[in-house]
């Protein structure tokens, strides 16, 4: 559905993207992770026909982004990281404008717009002016705008940035619905744990290079023997702190109110031994497992070497 072959982009002497090889199958949700300036938006803009690659090729639904831009645009919905607002337009008029821009017949538009507003839970805001909507609502409206021409591919550049937790959850639920509808989604985010739940595959990009790509488990540093762990205790907190600090497989130990967060570089067997030690020391362990921020650990561990290059 999305394929890039030796894709590179440079701005003068600055290489924004280097030899990107990517293949996303139909119906998959692919998470693109990387710090600012890593090349995520550049890739997305090339795929959306907004930037010309310096080298290589890119295909969306089999169409070449360079040679068949009109077909590519018809096949994808692009959502940039910032929601641009038109003054004095209601949500319905906003969607109607884009429906017209995709040459959708006028008689089909009203029912289509009503369905889309329902999908993004904005039916009650149909007649509200776009600039009066909250950031979360604007992002959802933007998502509805992406879907106006029923594209097979969605390219979402940091859709959750700047949203409060509730708005993030709402957006994530809509994205899950879209995944169920069989849409192929390329999504980038800084909020890494969000992608863990949503994505089938992830790609980690740093300084223009794709440094890891595949299923979450595949990419996870569990395979490399590193896990971001969390231990919560009810009793004997200080004794637990001592055991953890002395354990040779524990790194970057952080102590919280009710527990600990650390990087564990040992195997599952060594993890079990650590738990046993804690129990033998009569520490009341209420939680012993991977941290919900594990994807962040994946990212940090993988990019650690690249950042130093």
């Amino acid at each position: 559905m999305i394929e890039t072959i030796h894709l590179s982009k440079s701005y003068g002497k600055v290489q924004a993207l280097i030899d990107l090889q990517l293949r996303i199958e139909q119906g998959k949700v692919f998470g693109f992770i990387g710090p600012n300036g890593a090349g995520k938006s550049t890739t997305m803009m090339i795929l959306s026909t907004l930037l010309e690659p310096t080298e290589g090729e890119a295909f969306v639904c089999g169409y070449d982004v360079r040679k068949e831009p009109a077909e590519v645009r018809q096949s994808l919905g692009y959502m940039p990281d910032f929601f641009g607002v038109y003054d004095n337009l209601t949500a319905v008029e906003y969607l109607d404008f884009y429906a017209g821009a995709f040459k959708i017949a006028p008689h089909k538009r009203s029912s289509l717009i009503a369905d889309l507003l329902e999908l993004v839970n904005l039916s009650d805001k149909a007649e509200a002016y776009v600039d009066s909507l909250s950031r979360g609502m604007q992002q959802r409206l933007s998502l509805a705008r992406c879907l106006i021409h029923d594209p097979q591919v969605l390219i979402l550049d940091e859709p959750a940035s700047g949203l409060d937790p509730r708005a993030r959850i709402e957006l994530r639920e809509i994205l899950k619905q879209l995944r169920c509808m069989g849409k192929t989604i390329l999504i980038s985010s800084h909020i890494l744990p969000e992608l863990a739940e949503l994505c089938d595959d992830i790609g980690i990009i740093e300084k223009g290079r794709l440094i890891a790509c595949g299923g979450l488990d595949e990419v996870s540093i569990r395979a490399r023997g590193v896990t971001l762990m969390m231990v919560k205790t009810l009793r004997n907190h200080h004794r637990a702190a001592l055991i953890l600090a002395e354990n040779m497989f524990v790194e970057d130990l952080e102590e919280n109110m009710d527990g600990f967060r650390f990087r564990f570089i040992g195997s599952d067997h060594q993890k079990a031994e650590l738990l046993q030690k804690l129990i033998e020391a009569e520490v009341a362990v209420s939680y012993f497992g991977e941290s919900s921020e594990n994807l962040e650990a994946v990212f940090l561990a993988i990019t650690e070497g690249v950042a130093g290059r």
Partner: peptide, 16 residues
């Protein structure tokens, strides 16, 4: 103005 409002890129990905 479209560029400043960051709506130009979206407009350029339509069929216009």
């Amino acid at each position: 103005g479209e560029r400043e409002r960051q709506t130009l890129n979206i407009l350029l990905t339509t069929q216009l």
